[in-house]
Amino acid sequence: MGAECKCNCEQDKSLDALFAQNKGNPNGLIVVMAAIQESQGYLPKDYLVKTAEELGVPLSDVYGVATFYAAFSLRPRGRHSVNLCLGTACYVKGAPEVQAMLEKEMGIKAGNTTEDRRFSLDLVRCLGACGIAPVLTVNGEVYPRMSSDKVSEIIAKYE
């Protein structure tokens, strides 16, 4: 369609604007934290302290939310985000072998980031693309019908 949106829904997504919009409003906590996660790649401590002050939420609650949701990370992430689906369909189609190869090539266990911060490797739940299982995504780009012999070629593409 390509039509420009004219409904004023495009809110200013900058962090300052979000803090201003949600000042004193604990209900905006997840929205603000998602924006921090997106812009910083993780949740730095000083940002969380500021969030707690601005929204009027105890820091312990902020920490509670940060550790509850999988989308939030308290540690810095790698430049490239590698996600391997371990949903049931991918699992039975051979995702564990792909996982083993990824861990071997990167030299880390899943859930971690390489020392040079090149890759973060995570295992995710069903991506809903079972027709092309096993599925690997790198920075959101989808690699269908994965097998362990394709791993080194794919990760070599990302510097």
Partner: peptide, 21 residues
Amino acid sequence: AGAFVCGEETALLASIEGRRG
């Protein structure tokens, strides 16, 4: 924000309210 349990309705409502689901 990536929590399986938020598909449960009361957890989902808590999540909309900005709390742990």
